[in-house]
Design a protein around this nucleic acid. Sequence first.
DNA 1: AACAAGTGTTTTACCTGTAAATCAAATGTC
DNA 2: GACATTTGATTTACAGGTAAAACACTTGTT
Lengths: 193, 193
Amino acid sequence: MTATDGGANDGGAGSRAGSGDGGTGPGGDTVAAVVRQWRAVHPDLDTGPMEIIGRINRCAALLQQAEDAPLRRAGLSRAEFDLLGALRRTGHELTPGELARETFSSGAAVTKRLKQLTERGLVERRGDTRDRRVAHVRLTDTGRDLVDGILPEQLAYESAVLSGVDGPRQGELAALLGGLLGQLEGRLDALRA
Amino acid sequence: MTATDGGANDGGAGSRAGSGDGGTGPGGDTVAAVVRQWRAVHPDLDTGPMEIIGRINRCAALLQQAEDAPLRRAGLSRAEFDLLGALRRTGHELTPGELARETFSSGAAVTKRLKQLTERGLVERRGDTRDRRVAHVRLTDTGRDLVDGILPEQLAYESAVLSGVDGPRQGELAALLGGLLGQLEGRLDALRA
DNA sequence: AACAAGTGTTTTACCTGTAAATCAAATGTC
DNA sequence: GACATTTGATTTACAGGTAAAACACTTGTT
């Protein structure tokens, strides 16, 4: 769900007025409505996890749509911007493999993106002299300027999107999410095994 | 990012040990590391939004990978499960259009999924008698049993994934996310315009 | 030195999603 | 009652993404 944004990532959630039940109203967000539906059908199940995971997934879907807007104006997909951003923020050259790890995508995807970004003159490649398998990728001046130009817009846009939540709550949210993410990044490999 | 899961949804984030900087350590999660990198390069920018949006996106990516596991065992993609789940939790037939709205995906995607799920005998269709454009889709007994069999596993799995966060914090997180989501669902159309 | 095994990158084949065009049927308008 | 408009669903063309295979090169072993 990146390019044009996907859709079906709801953690068992997903809902909308659809037929007749009007907007969200004072009953909560759409995920709350979905959880209510599930509870009506399976009163025995603990739907607690949905209230977190469903909401994270739904927020992510909505935020990505929103975020894409400023990027699209610059003719970049989010995946492309992530790649360029990785080069910009690290400040040094990266190999395709490193870029794949940095952007959490497959090597094949990085290869394709690099091809396009190179054609557009945003990145350059140079072969390693020691190990002739590896390439080193760096931003061109154009690429650097593009990232530096977009980033402030992007952040301003994100600020606007979050403006409905007051300052202190934003802080709490960031902290709690940081805690969760730390747990997930640490434990996930373990759980998957 | 669903079928096999997407990847590059980071909100300007994305990071991993990559070369040599070891695990996450007591410095925070990977998003915190990315934010530090950005601040080093652009000390003037307000990176606050990244700490929320970047984390939501990254959590969503990780959670979806994790969630996929129990579904995959049942031979379903998340998108397919979302569709079946919508039918199960509403308890009545839905038209393709309603299913698209429920699962936040395009009509074309629903058409394709319905074709596959029908072939697998998990859903059935019936034409509307009044309006011959519309179809009504319902779960077969097999489909219903499949959903009912998977759902508890799914929730148990999600519980396990969240178990690193203690009870009270889970509650706070759910509430804060609910607030954010409510804002986003209400205001997003406005912002996009 | 030859060769097995490993590593970094790219290629291939395929799958799934979207947007836009198309088809089909209902509905409003004159 | 014919005709433009709208609405529901499907088809088409295409853009990415992945997994697995293929390459190219390096490194360890004997």
